[in-house]
């Protein structure tokens, strides 16, 4: 398994290299540059600026220069935010995105597994209909729809939560963004959990457990839910990666100073260093999450050998 993990990590290097290459040429083909202003800028000043940020020379030269620096894990300095190193910006902003992502993730898992388990236990009963209805309607409510509706109802009408911002351990600022972001993946998890739970409940070992007199609660929790989670596990990786890398919308809606917001801002002002840094960083996270899921899968199900 260790050999497998090492091989996968090594394979990530050419992939990230390719991602960096594509992104580099894509972002340089966006029209306009970082120093475009309303007022005309003198040629001399523009030349000095280009020289300072290594934007002089041909595109291929810039590319070589950038790649050499990236290989040394130096992502350069941000053009738009007072020459801060891109690495610092990513570190700071990603902290916020990560908190938001983890909260949304926890909400999604709790909602999904609970709904799925309740639906499966009461198959074709009232609990099932309520669960399936919630899972289905949740699947039609992406974050950018849910966010305004939640804000109107819970923040403006009921005044329970704040409209904007993010602060760790302040529930007034944490609940709405997490719920808005976690609903869609939660509904998705619920569907998978229900199907897999229904399958597990018909297995022989569940009957055996009941036959030998194990309490129903223990049967459900220890025998059924635990095994039903294996299919859920495989989708958790992509969902988690999606949540921490896809927070653009929610960060924008709630004015949360996270990495997604920073990326959108940097695209608008052509801050090449940040665009590049964030893309590479996110691509790396996604690749890493996929690897972790594959490894976890092997741990959870001993029949799978890597």
């Amino acid at each position: 398994m260790i050999a497998y993990a090492i091989r996968r990590v090594l394979l990530m290097v050419p992939l990230l290299f390719a991602v960096a290459t594509v992104t580099f040429f894509l972002m340089h083909s966006v029209e306009g540059g970082p120093f475009d202003t309303d007022k005309p800028m003198s040629e001399a000043a523009r030349e000095r600026l280009n020289e300072k940020y290594n934007l002089d020379g041909s595109l291929v030269e810039q590319y070589g220069h950038f790649m050499a620096n990236t290989a040394k894990l130096d992502l350069g300095i941000s053009i738009s935010s007072n020459e801060r190193p891109v690495r610092d910006i990513i570190q700071e902003k990603f902290g916020v995105s990560l908190q938001l992502g983890i909260c949304a993730f926890l909400f999604a898992i709790t909602l999904g597994v609970t709904l799925g388990a309740i639906s499966a236990i009461n198959q074709n009963g009232i609990g099932d209909y309520v669960g399936v209805f919630m899972a289905t309607s949740g699947a039609a409510l992406p974050s950018f729809i849910l966010a305004p509706l939640l804000v109107i109802f819970f923040a403006l009408k009921l005044n329970w939560f704040d409209v904007l911002g993010w602060e760790l351990w302040n529930y007034k600022k944490m609940v709405l963004p997490s719920v808005a972001m976690g609903m869609l993946p939660g509904a998705f998890i619920a569907r998978i959990a229900r199907a897999s739970m229904l399958d597990i409940l018909r297995q022989d070992y569940i009957r055996t457990a009941r036959a030998k007199g194990v309490k129903e609660f223990t049967v459900i929790l220890r025998h059924a839910v635990k095994n039903a989670l294996i299919p859920v596990l495989t989708i958790l990786g992509p969902i988690f990666a999606g949540l921490i890398t896809g927070s653009f919308i929610i960060e924008n809606a709630f004015a949360i100073p996270g990495l997604g917001n920073a990326f959108v801002g940097s695209v608008l002002v052509r801050d090449y260093g940040v665009i590049m840094g964030v893309t590479l960083f996110y691509a790396g996270i996604i690749a890493l999450m996929n690897l972790i899921v594959d490894l976890l899968y092997a741990v959870a199900d001993p029949r799978i050998r890597l």
Binding site: L15, L16, A18, V19, V22, T23, L26, M27, S29, V30, E31, G242, T245, G246, F248, I249, F263, V264, V267, I275, V278, T279, Y282, A283, I286, A287
Partner: peptide
């Protein structure tokens, strides 16, 4: 295909949108 899959979806869409607009 794997390369296209490695890009975070929304991030790539935002970048491509900027590349393709006003061209």
């Amino acid at each position: 295909t794997d390369l296209a899959y490695a890009f975070p979806d929304l991030l790539a869409i935002i970048l491509l949108r900027q590349v393709l607009f006003g061209r």
